[in-house]
Design a protein around this nucleic acid. Sequence first.
RNA 1: GGGCCUGUAGCUCAGGUGGUUAGAGCGCACGCCUGAUAAGCGUGAGGUCCGAGGUUCAACUCCUCGCAGGCCCA
Length: 1098
Amino acid sequence: MTAAPTAGAGARFAILGADQSPDLLEREVQATWEAEKLFAQLQRERAGGEPWVFFEGPPTANGRPGIHHVFARTIKDLFCRHRAMRGYLVPRKAGWDTHGLPVEIEVEKRLGISGKQDIERLGVEEFNRLCRESVFTYRGEWERLSERMGYWLDYSDPYVTYSNDYVESVWWALSTLHQRELLYRGHKILPYCARCGTSLSSHEVAQGYEDVEDPSVYVALDIVLTNDGPVEQGVDAEGRPRSTRRILVWTTTPWTLVSNTALAVNPSLVYVELRRKSGDSGFTLTLAESRVAGVLGLDWADRWTEVARREGSEMVGWRYRRPIDWLTFDDGDHEVIVGESFVSADDGSGVVHMAPAFGADDYAAGTRHGLAFLQPVDARGRFPETMPRVGGKFVKEADPALIDYLREHGSLWKAGALTHSYPHCWRCRTPLLYYARTSWFVRTTAYRDRMLSRNARVDWHPPEVGSGRFGEWLVNNIDWAISRDRYWGTPLPVWVNDADPTEVEVIGSYAELAQRVGRELGPDFDPHKPFIDAYTWPARSGTGTMRRVPEVIDAWFDSGSMPFAQWHYPFENVELLPQRYPADFIAEGVDQTRGWFYSLLAIATGLGDALPGNGGISSVGDGVTPALPQAAPFRTVVVNDMVLDANGQKMSKSRGNVVNPWDVIERHGVDAVRLFLLASSKVWVPRRFDEDSLRETAGRFLVTLRNVYSGIFAQYANFGWSPSDSAPVYEERPLADRWILSRLTTVEREADELLGDFDATAASNLLMTFVIEDVSNWYVRRNRSRFQSPDGILDAAAFATLHEVLVVTCRLLAPLAPFITDWMHRQLTGKSVHLASYRRAHPPLADPALEAAMAEVRELARLGRAAREEAGIRVRQPLSRVVCVVPPATPSVIHELLPLLREELNVKEVELASSADSLVSLSARPNFRALGIKFGSRTPLAARAVSELDGDSLQVVERGGTVDVTVDGETHPVGLDEVTIQRRATGELVVQEADGRFAAIDPELTTELRSEGLARELVSKVQRTRREMGFAVSDRIRLLVDGDPARIAALREHAEWIASETLTTTLIFGPDWPSGDHAARTLDLDGTSVRVALNRDS
RNA sequence: GGGCCUGUAGCUCAGGUGGUUAGAGCGCACGCCUGAUAAGCGUGAGGUCCGAGGUUCAACUCCUCGCAGGCCCA
């Protein structure tokens, strides 16, 4: 890397060659950062600043980082950098999520084993050792990529969820929740393989769906009590005592009928009660109206007649008699109809049988309605030996016997078969059972409202994720099942008396554990399985031994504990935590909605005032103290969506379209990748990663930035300008300089506000547009000659101006593209951009009038060019004049800017015409918004009347008066508010107009103009020849020109100008060819040939 | 089945609170420039704003119902 320039004479700004690869440059910058320990330096400099707290969501280091990780980390990095540049101290502690199923699966794969039996055969100790080892297989690559992409994070002291300190903090959280009666043992319905004896995780289930044939059974159950009272009893055709009203229920799992405790109807569906027209007409049958034809046949009306219809909500609370009464009810309601919105009328009868032990919906409904819970099936999926008819049978094999039983008792309505997709064990193909398993829960439903109110305080980007995807889901929150029947995880710190399962102790620290077991834990203490299970102690009650439950906890509970566990709180850092909690900012992918975002909120809300400054619950049950404000653990969250491939497809290994971040970084550089990801669309919309698109947007922008710096600024500044040279104060610089400096001030403020508001996309586009349009395409282009051959102090001020523009632009861009900006900033100032302040303390004032006027000039330039195009006259050919009109509100400073327009359009004169000018005619455009308020439904009539106003009337209006228009027979005054006045050119000029502005060129070419055009043409071609011959920019030449006498005469008029433009010391017109070396060319000048010869004047 | 997002030019995307001429970049066509040059600039042609209803004097914008794609959850 080139040494930074020192201020003063002879300063040299390094030039960035066009062939310099971004990758190489960025690696050099990276090396500099490392050598300087720049991140640590920044943190030291900000140490006294107000903290702006960032939480790093810990990645699971068991897979290679992909391009989407680069995306998420760019977002995290850029806001942290921005706030640091604003002066905040932004702690950035790294973290690793190291527990959980993904790690176990990775190890299983590597060992070529699968399933719990295999793991236990291997030994839990060995398995967990391998898990611990594997976690950091990819850690090195994660760190290297993070560094390469410029994601600054303190990796020296990361939090690691498997570490003893971290686990202890998690234990503390669990025991705190337990003290608040928020931890309990309950049931959870899980997909379970009875053969393997294990429950399956959702992604295992997803692998095992197969089409199978299952029974499809309708049973008609007796209704015994409705809202109108008891139902009359009777006997059926076979003489069995039955109720006179029945309800039709459908199931594909007859074996669960043994455990039936309720029926569910959809409260908003319509149900009909039908009676047979003939035959067994002594009873009625109730089912959903929309299912009647499906169940009873399309011709049902021939045989049935409707006796009542009602909404499901009217049936809630009715009582029925269950189909099989072998089991005794325990606590809870039973044989009742409940209302549940999940009940669908797409199949079945619109009435669903509920067995809370065997279905997730059923279980949830059971919890909601306090239903009884009947679970007779053992761990191998069999009914107890003592059960009638099906004793000892595997449940699925018991179906036929149960169907027979129903038939014998007259409750079977019809039995068939149904082919549908059903989950099977992916290992052994056994159909899975949805099974209630004992599980440990956090009673999140007890504080759901608090989670909602805390969530309402979060600044979500975008807001709809917070209110919709997350908020809606919170409303339907159910208790968090935190235990897992697995091996590699934080062990659940729950010890239960083996003689009395109601005696439970939850251990909240290692000291407490040591106290229980009556000895030191020792330096080699490992809280993981299997070691932890060796810690037991005699129960306090005197009988039995306290033994730890076998489960580990959900890894999401680990990561959700990071706000305090990363600091080993409350065992350490008690003073620090109030300054590091809550987070001002987090950012993760939308897939974290129910992951990390939830676990952070659920844990923090449950802990309440056990965390400093967290407010909330101090106890549960009767005593709730809502004293402190209930903040969420994060004040702001930026949610990013996925990165898709160039065709909008999800990246996946099987499709082979996964983008390797290292490859694209090598090709384009990190700055371009970061900018592209941020700028292509709002970060919370899925974006396509298309390298062609990247190249032409972010890539092109960076080339332009480099060109402005190297090709304009550095190249010419190196001829003798230095930052210490005195330049006129801002107010005395040329108007163009004041304009770009004003734009800079405006953009500086806007970019800061946008990033302050977490809108990285708008900030990226603002800055890229500023550099390309305002800096490169207007300021630099129009002032190029001031850099190439500065004449006097006002010209030279361009260097000071562009220097300022580039320095500030680097700062504004630094959070987004940290490499090139740092390189350039060091060249320009000798200092790293990342230690700079984002905004200048005393920028020159913005001049809105100047900016507005320049915008008009640029629009006129566009129109003027279009007019030239239309007239077919190239820009090099000078023209006599252009006549322009701008809106009346245009600031008067525009008059001072007209020289710029004259140069841009290559005309001798620019006239601003007024409305009174003979070139101009006025026309009116109705202002619908204003007219609409006044005229309502007659707006179209009024609009027509307004647009028919003549020029004289409009002049009156323009001066602030009103004129009357007739609308629908009535007269109304119309003023400036209701009409937009437009000017059009009349006469012989070539006109382009838009939105009340126009530019009209005079296409007439005088002899004088023609000869000047010719001279320009010659200069241009001679310049090209010089260049082709390899002359240096400053080389002087001798030039001879010969050709058609009329042309030569025309050129001769401009001899002096030609000579000075081409650095010609001796200019000869005529046929006298010089002796010696020279290059002779025949040039085509405006249709005729001219011969030139030139050589270096040494 | 539920929740949320997206649908605008060939492509990628912008388009507060409804206002009659819907924008940009790329690509394309034509042209300019030729000492930022393995660069730069301009002009132009491209659009039933996914569809159907509705509200309104007026709908890309608001409402309802669909269609297509995506994500998450069942």
